[in-house]
Computed example of a mutant assay.
Amino acid sequence: MTESIKQTIEQLSKEIERHNHAYYVMDAPTVPDAEYDRLMRQLQQLEQQHPELRLPNSPSTRVGGQALEKFSQITHRVPMLSLDNAMSGDEFISFYERVSGLLGDEAITFCCEPKLDGLAVSLIYEAGQLVSAATRGDGTTGENITENVRTIKAIPLVLHGEDYPEVLEVRGEVFMPTAGFDAFNERAQSKGEKTFANPRNAAAGSLRQLDSKITATRPLSFYAYSLGVVENECAPLPVSHYQQLQTLKGWGLPVSPEIKLVTGQQNVIAYFDDILSRRPQLPYEIDGVVNKVDSIASQKQLGFVARAPRWAIASKFPAQEEITELEEVEFQVGRTGAMGVTLPQTVSNRTSHNTMSEVVAR
């Protein structure tokens, strides 16, 4: 009897994880929400009746665990470095020419992707099991947010396949999609609770909850963007950054669908302009594009400078400016003592929104 229940729990866990993978990684849901909820309830009921049979990385752990008194610290075995920024087209061209000069190659292939406006995290898998998660922190030491990360359905608790390394560090961005952010703020406002100013603050605030049950209620997602520590590989990893990300996807980790291989300076600029033009339609907030030399051998050849790699740069979007000239303001005090403000009917607004091509042309 016990063995039969154990098998049922294992089968339900695998089935739920398959559905999570289909929904969050492949963007191809395999069952309606009602069926997913039914499977989850069945699993939770069996685990409540037989807690000794609950798997260490059961999908049910995504609802959150015991609240922490404070976060412990995790030291990154490989520092989580920041990227240098290109604030204009000219700065990107200077970067490109510097890299091409060092590599002796004028037509460099880059792995380009949107720069998500979220929170960078490190995930450690051992024998395919998620064992820890940490924030970037100061690059050397970050906060232990393992229990909170376990509640994010886009992050697999167990890797897919069998050819992953014994130890695998995955780095990526936790973010809150704009639709989830808007819905969360609407609910909070209707209850008179605190709202967040933007999706980045919402993601960061959600990950830093001492009670993971609160994090579990937040609509967080995740995209992987690089590897950190890798030990005891079952098979050699690809020598292309882009192909490494595709390998991560095969192991169940979501990557941005906008990632693209781009060769040559003008094509990288065209990618930037294309993403900038589609920025309002993307389902998440971004503030630029990240360009990484695709060849891992070239990355090693270029190395690092200070706290940033020589082989990557973040091309930041032009600031979206809204300048208002306030000409006058009137204050009124009501019968209850409440202060009222009347703004003028006419204000002066100015916005600036240039593509990289337009900036370079100037």
Rank of each mutant, 00 (worst) to 15 (best):
G192Y: 06
G142C: 13
K316A: 06
F95K: 02
S58G: 07
A202K: 00
V268Q: 06
A297T: 11
V341F: 08
L276S: 06
N232C: 07
V25M: 03
G172S: 08
A133Q: 01
Y36V: 05
S58T: 11
D117Y: 11
V121D: 01
L53G: 10
F71S: 08
P51D: 05
I93W: 03
T195M: 12
C234K: 14
R208Q: 08
G139L: 07
M80K: 04
T351N: 11
P51K: 12
G337K: 02
G104K: 05
T195Y: 07
S82Q: 05
A224P: 02
P199T: 13
R362S: 15
V167W: 07
N267M: 09
P165H: 13
V262Y: 08
T217V: 04
V268G: 01
D84R: 12
R171K: 08
I269E: 00
N20R: 15
D163K: 03
A120P: 05
L261K: 14
L237P: 00
E47V: 05
F272V: 09
D33Q: 15
Y125R: 00
E147D: 15
T146P: 05
E166I: 02
N267H: 10
S4Q: 13
A134L: 01
F304G: 13
T30M: 11
K316D: 06
E147W: 04
A202D: 03
D273N: 11
F222R: 03
M339W: 10
E143H: 14
C112Q: 11
P56K: 14
I269D: 00
E91F: 05
L123R: 01
L168T: 03
A203P: 00
E233S: 03
F184D: 09
P238S: 15
E285A: 12
A308Q: 12
E52W: 02
C234A: 11
L103Y: 04
A203C: 06
E233N: 02
D105A: 11
L83C: 08
L276G: 02
H19P: 03
S190V: 09
G228P: 00
G250W: 10
V290D: 08
L123A: 04
A204F: 09
H160P: 01
Y223P: 02
A22H: 08
K6P: 02
A28D: 07
S315H: 08
R278G: 02
E166N: 06
P199K: 11
R307Y: 15
R310Y: 11
N349I: 14
R38M: 12
E328Y: 13
G252I: 03
E166C: 05
F175M: 09
Q189F: 10
M80L: 14
V290E: 10
K292L: 09
